[in-house]
Amino acid sequence: MRAGMMGLLVLLLALAATAMADERALRKARLMPMWSPQAQFAGYYMAREQGIYARHGLDIDILEGGPGRSAVESLTACEADFAVLWLATALQQDAAGPRLVNLAQIVQRSSLMLVAKKASGIAAPHDLMERKVGLWNGELSLPILAFLDTYRLRVRRIPQAYTVNLFLLDGIDAASAMWYNEYHTILSAGVNPDELQVFSLHEHGITFPEDGLYALERAYRKDPALARAFAQASLEGWRYAFDHPEETIEVVLRIMRQANIPASRAHQRWMLARMRDLIVPADADGVMGRLQPAAYEAAGRILRDHGGIATVPDYETFTGGDDARN
């Protein structure tokens, strides 16, 4: 009898110890997305919501991005451990230092497009000559500049902010747009697709990988396993999001409302569907999350030509070198 009680006590203590050990095993880390909450980051939200990060031993805090909150600055200021960055942003930062490591390439190709109204008489790239074209500030416009260069177009560059209202009011002839975002915003303002002339950059030979997961190189060197686990869990989160789109949209809308950001269900549904098109490799043997060396080289050329950097790091170094294979 006494021995039985003792045994039970020992068992209970052992269980409690295991639970505490699990608690301790979750490594805390912070992720900074490059923009306000939206379906562009659905995979990370779902990895957190579905406990995928936890299963990989991570407790990820997803910070709130948005205008005035630069993801790359958060990373360099060590306010975030990981960031979702454009490849162009990452390469520019890498050149300026401290150096970054690409943990996973999420968006495989350029989703950028130039959108014009057919009514303005624009049907082909050369029709953009001397027209007012809206361009975002900084590295976001680099692929567009490469596009204009390809067709040797001189355009009147108009700085473009976060809205497409100037375009809708015909203040500019063509606007920069993300396929998954601004393009649908234009449709949601009552413009029909057949009224628009769209120049998708990737259809004009500009395959510029966009969203990727990054960490500071020095942080990465300290604990490559943590970073790899984060990248794997994030990709798993994306797979879950694509398999459960309606559930994912609910989560995204909830997070957007919490952040007081206008949230349209149709818009987020569109965005998630387009993210799937952009993230899931088109060909069967493509690997999700892998930065393609060829695309990396092409992006590097564009950056050297238009982005004001002299060299890009070699592929192995930029993607974490030997540690990637360990």
Binding site: A161, T163, N165
Partner: peptide, 18 residues
């Protein structure tokens, strides 16, 4: 490049923002 500034400037007329 905020709407309230850019739109009237580019259109050259009074504009009410969204």
């Amino acid at each position: 490049n905020r709407d309230w500034y850019q739109i009237p400037k580019e259109l050259g007329r009074k504009a009410w923002s969204e």
